[in-house]
Design a binder for these strands. Structure first.
Lengths: 236, 236
DNA sequence: CCACCTCATATTGTCAGACAATCTGACAAG
DNA sequence: CTTGTCAGATTGTCTGACAATATGAGGTGG
């Protein structure tokens, strides 16, 4: 992989190309995800199959399959004979997501030393992408969140485990759902970015464990985010 | 929960009662899961919708939804316009599952000291259940696997995080799929049980970190299982 | 003999329509 | 205040159908 095997017929080349022909179900699921993350669909909103089918111009079975996907991702909940609704992030679930985040991201931090160089570089790149957006000042609220969470996922990528990354992405989706419920988080993006930079500096310096190390730093960082999100949800 | 709150109107009593009325889709999914775990459906077997619908006496859309669930669980794979097949465990995926297991179960081990007493008791109970089945000698191969993996899940339960437990159960399901492909693992169940007992003894003694600690012990334990499973798969 | 093309068949992806079972809410009765 | 009843709405499931695509056999030409 990575090296073209000098195929005269070019049978395995162009593997990076793709047409947009995703299945209808996945397109519907993507559209629902987008609507949920952008706050168009508030938490608790019932997702009526007939209304969605007519609105999106697809059939009801297609909508049902897409809803099944959303439920499996934890972005919606299904109650028997009562249909599917947008999930409502409770304080307890935010706490649990953050606890799980710390386990996954902490494992990534521990793997910094033994991680592939390209993965370490990716952490720096996602951090740079976030800080640049913060400094630019013209990025949307959703865009900032996206880059912020991408940095945290890149930490999990240090483990080199696709499954852990997939789990982390699911957790981030749940956080995006929670963040979509609050109009704005009164958190200072500049402080956030500086905190991330401090974390990477600790990593580069090799100070992982013990007091003042990256692992403990990350714990504080995630706990701070946890209480901020929960407080913001309480205000609703 | 657990104690009846002496309610005159009994409004919140009877919460433990439930009828079995699971939906048709979930029953079909459960049946497919069982068939996969018991080896009736070999890895790579195409799951034809029409054949399954006729065989199970349900309609094709119902089968499709159940297959979507299986795919989301990682027990089957869907290729566009080619349908769904039972997933084939590759060596790389077994390695990844075990890496992820170590992160999750390791987090449980680290949480032993601060864990709820009932969760520590549950670890002892699942260990006892496994060792008893091993000593009894009359337990089926699948039953032994089930109790073995239940012990490992109970370690993750020490974290107190439902999401981490859910992730661990998904990983165990993938392992069960892999184990269903090999007729028998030539691993000595007595040695396995003794290894588990050694791990719990380290936990009870509070020896978590450092060389000879429970964390490192668990790493070895999982790595041993990893190489055994991969070797068994190679023989196929 | 092998590469290539064509075509019939099977399977999936998607749709339309229908029906019974169940939930919701309101209202009447004890 | 609880229970029974009923109309409307929604889901869960089934049947049937069609187009798009993959699969495999067979024929054709080099």
């Amino acid at each position: 992989m990575g090296v073209m095997p000098a195929a005269p017929t070019a049978r395995k080349a162009f593997t990076t190309l793709s047409v947009e022909h995703a299945s209808t179900v996945s397109r519907v699921a993507a559209e629902l995800r987008r609507a949920v993350f952008e706050g168009e669909l508030e938490s608790g909103t019932p997702l009526r199959e007939i209304a969605l089918a007519e609105s999106l111009g697809v059939s009801r079975p297609t909508v049902r399959e897409a809803l099944t996907v959303l439920v499996a991702e934890g972005l919606a909940t299904r109650e028997p004979n009562r249909g599917v609704s947008v999930a409502t992030p409770r304080a307890e679930s935010v706490r649990d997501v953050c606890r799980a985040r710390w386990v996954l991201e902490g494992a990534g931090v521990q793997a910094w030393a033994s991680a592939d160089a390209v993965r370490r570089q990716r952490v720096r790149a996602t951090l740079e992408s976030y800080t640049a957006a913060v400094r630019g000042g013209d990025a949307s609220y959703e865009d900032l969140n996206e880059r912020h969470l991408a940095f945290h996922v890149s930490l999990v990528e240090l483990t080199g485990s696709p499954r852990l990354v997939q789990m982390a992405e699911a957790l981030m989706d749940e956080l995006k759902l929670a963040l979509a419920q609050v109009d704005r988080l009164n958190r200072n993006a500049h402080d956030e970015a500086e905190s991330h930079e401090g974390l990477v500096e600790l990593l580069e310096a090799g100070r992982l464990n013990g007091p003042g190390g990256a692992h403990e730093f990350l714990r504080k960082h995630i706990e701070d985010a946890e209480v901020e999100i929960i407080e913001a949800l309480r205000l609703e």
